[in-house]
Design a protein around this nucleic acid. Structure first.
Length: 274
DNA sequence: TCCTCCCTGTTC
DNA sequence: GAACAGGGAGGA
């Protein structure tokens, strides 16, 4: 489940392999992973990678000498892997980008995705302007201040559902929503608009703190997540609530409650989270 | 505003 | 052999 910390880690680990390289050839092994708005992949050869970054959960390769962007949404099980120029596709390899002119020599960028929910999008600014998800994507957590965050929580949703809504705030998925709400001591089923000034400010601080700690640990590997070098993250070892339903709360010792909120598994401490 | 579907591998 | 994992699109 690559969320913001995982995609950030992928971008950082991918950059040294592919920065400055140019696309020589692209092999699409599963056509359904191409986003319907995407330019054809044949538009990529010749383009050069000038930057590797992230917006929300989107991995963004900034290009020159061709289309402006190569964007990957990894969804649940997607991986962006730096591989050697001799590497062969595995059973879940969906697309291969052959690169030349990289500092470390020729290499390949593999887009692997077990469940095939992920998408690749080759885009220009005109295409991004037509993409509703991009146009409506909320602000980066680290760019938000407390008043702006409280204003964005003024929606008719449950608090956890609002945190997961990419229009409200970008980059948070199920893991970091549950962990942030526990750290802030706020119940996930509260109406989002019920948070007062102090509570919303505290939640924003906890969101940022949890995300920063997760980035420092290179993300959370539940089962499928790996960085561009194939390495696991370590933040899953420090989870307070995610995946710990029925186990004792690390603060009060009471049993953590597991429910479903907005169709998502949710774990929280009824005693510590009000 | 909530529910279902898309996908495949793992677990019960 | 069913339940579950779950982000986002699309429909009720």
């Amino acid at each position: 489940m690559p969320e913001l910390p995982e995609v950030e880690t992928i971008a950082r680990s991918l950059a040294p392999h592919i920065l400055g390289a140019s696309f020589s050839r692209v092999r699409l092994l599963r056509s359904s992973c191409l986003h319907p708005l995407s330019l054809p992949l044949e538009s990529l050869p010749g383009a050069r990678i000038r930057n590797v970054g992230r917006r929300g959960k989107l991995l963004m390769l900034e290009l020159e000498g061709g289309p402006d962007w190569l964007i990957m949404h990894l969804r649940m099980t997607g991986r962006a892997l730096a591989r050697s120029s001799e590497a062969e596709p595995g059973p879940h390899t969906r697309c291969i980008f052959c690169l030349e002119g990289a500092e470390g020599g020729p290499c390949q960028l593999f887009f692997d995705d077990i469940r095939a929910f992920g998408k690749i999008l080759v885009a220009t600014p005109q295409i991004l302007a037509k993409w509703p998800f991009w146009q409506e994507l909320g602000p980066e957590p680290f760019d938000l201040d407390a008043p702006a965050f409280q204003a964005r929580l003024a929606v008719s949703k449950l608090l956890k559902t609002a945190l997961l809504d990419q229009k409200v705030i970008a980059g948070i998925g199920n893991i970091y929503a549950d962990e942030s709400l526990f750290e802030a001591g706020l119940a996930p089923e509260r109406p989002a608009k019920s948070l007062d000034e102090a509570e919303s400010a505290r939640l924003l601080e906890c969101v940022k703190a949890v995300l920063e700690r997760a980035i420092a640990k290179k993300g959370s590997s539940i089962r499928d997540y790996r960085d561009a070098d194939g390495n696991e993250g370590a933040f899953q070892k420090t989870f307070s609530v995610y995946g710990r339903g029925g186990k004792p709360c690390k603060k009060c010792g009471g049993l953590l409650k597991k429910t479903r909120i907005g169709g998502r598994a949710s774990v929280f401490c009824p005693h510590c989270q009000k």
